[in-house]
Nucleic acid binder design. Structure first.
Lengths: 186, 186
DNA sequence: GTCTATAGATAGATAGAC
DNA sequence: GTCTATCTATCTATAGAC
């Protein structure tokens, strides 16, 4: 049944979101699906097979999230708010980190990660245009790296004011981007 | 012998740098030290004990690296170069990622990570001053997050031009920081 | 105090039953 | 095609030898 595969992938996604790549084991994913580990290997013979399949689903979700975020932004004031909110989604950050680690070991996952990164940067370029800012590639790279860096820092430090600090940093960046076009005094 | 402990910690650091937290197991660290796993547990009874000890050493090294980087930067032109070079040190990035993951699970590691982050941001504030830029906290946060984001992206994507892209992004940021003070037309 | 043998738990993969 | 019993490898922890 094709439905089984979806159940397994969903369980794998949940594990990544809750525990990261550390918790990504066949027994745990099988248990969450209500299957035996030896049954799981029928659908995905090796751990790598399963990991690549889950990574594919994960990158699709991450791309959809990025798209949704971009659509929620309409003004320059929105931007920092919406993106800072994104950096506070720890489940999302754990998946992102898991993808990074897996990308280093699995070429297939690396390819998926690259596609995701390129797509995200493309979205950011479009966003800069939408906000009336020059769509400079380096600026899109800045926003992309900033999103990852702020998300990871927030997750690792466990700061209670993590989102506020993310927002302050993003606000400062968008202010700088805007100043370049229209340098009005203070 | 106190020397044994140092050997063990060094082996743990090497594992983190080469394989990340995934490879951080007692048998592998013991093998690298030339010890038996059951002997390793004499010095560090549990895996967590060992992890915290290695994390402590790792954060000290990361802090020293940051300090060394800051000292190498004297002009605004140096900054992007030196920092971009730092983002290309994958062994360093793997340790950083391992610390992030461990920080979420171990409160002691989280405390170490926070100290490291605060110290790094302090160094960045001093750097901004040194370069004749206003030392704004949000700007230091931007550089900190950017370093992490660019490092991780470079590691995960495996881009051949990763360092160049890091440099381009950092150059753009420092240009923006400088423009704020002295907005000269193009 | 230093080190080892061994046990207990968990992960991954395979052959084969239905 | 669907599912399970089982084997091997690996990891962590403990009791105890020297």
């Amino acid at each position: 049944m094709e439905d089984r595969r979806k159940q397994i992938i969903d369980a794998g996604l949940a594990i990544l979101a809750e525990e990261g790549l550390q918790g990504f084991t066949q027994p745990r994913i099988a248990a969450r699906t209500g299957l035996r580990q030896s049954h799981l290997t029928y659908y995905y013979p090796t751990r790598t097979d399963l990991l690549v399949a889950v990574a594919r689903a994960a990158t699709e979700i991450q791309a959809a999230n990025a798209q949704a975020m971009a659509q929620r932004i309409v003004t320059r004031e929105d931007a920092a708010d919406v993106i800072a909110c994104g950096t506070a989604r720890h489940e999302n950050t754990r998946v992102l980190l898991a993808l990074c680690e897996a990308a280093e070991q699995e070429p297939d996952v690396r390819a998926l990660f690259n596609t995701l990164a390129d797509g995200s940067i493309g979205l950011l370029m479009a966003l800069l245009s939408k906000l009336g800012l020059k769509p400079i590639p380096a600026h899109a790279d800045i926003l992309h790296a900033l999103f990852i860096g702020l998300s990871v820092t927030h997750l690792a430090t466990g700061r209670t004011n993590g989102e506020a600090r993310s927002k302050a940093a993003l606000d400062a960046v968008f202010t700088l981007f805007a100043q370049k076009r229209a340098p009005r005094g203070k």
